[in-house]
C-alpha cells in the first residue's frame, strides 16, 4: 500500500502548493486544508501501514493479539489533526479580517498595504 500512498501524498502536496500559489484568498484557505491533510498522511504512511492490527489490547491480555500497528505515529497524528483544525480556524479568521480591512482578495494587490 505504501507505494500507492506515496503517489496519493505527492498528489495532495502538489494540489496544496498549487492552491496556495493562487492569488485568491479562498483558494489559499483550501490549499492550507490540503497541506494539513497531506502532512498527516505523510507521517502515517512512512511509519508503515498495517491492515487490521489496531494498537488495542483485548481484555485480559497484556499485548495486542497477532502484532500491532505502530501507535506512536498515530498519537502524533491525532493531536496534529486537532491542532490543524485550531490553526486553520485562526488562519481563516485572520484572512477574513485581512479582507475586511483591506477590501481586496487578490494577494498580489495586498502587497504594499501596511495597515
Amino acid at each position: 500500500m505504501e507505494p500507492l500512498m506515496a503517489f496519493v501524498v505527492g498528489g495532495l502536496f502538489a494540489a496544496s502548493i498549487y492552491m496556495m500559489l493562487r492569488r485568491s484568498l479562498v483558494k489559499l484557505v483550501i490549499g492550507l486544508i490540503l497541506l494539513s491533510n497531506a502532512a498527516n498522511l505523510l507521517i502515517f504512511t512512512v511509519s508503515g501501514m498495517q491492515r487490521g492490527l489496531p494498537p488495542l489490547i483485548a481484555p485480559g491480555d497484556t499485548l495486542p493479539a497477532g502484532g500491532w500497528a505502530d501507535p506512536l505515529p498515530q498519537a502524533l497524528v491525532l493531536t496534529a489533526i486537532v491542532i490543524g483544525f485550531g490553526v486553520l480556524a485562526f488562519a481563516v479568521v485572520l484572512i477574513h479580517r485581512a479582507y475586511v480591512v483591506v477590501k481586496e482578495d487578490d494577494l498580489e494587490k495586498m502587497r504594499s498595504t501596511d495597515t
Binding site: A6, F13, L21, R23
Partner: peptide
Amino acid sequence: RLPGFIDYSAPATRIKDAVVAVALGGLMTL
C-alpha cells in the same frame, strides 16, 4: 463571506505554479 473564487493569474503563471507544485509533490513521492 469572502468574495468569489476567481483565479487572477495569467495562464503562463498557472503553468509555472503547476510546475513548482508538481516538483514538490514528486519530491514527496520519491
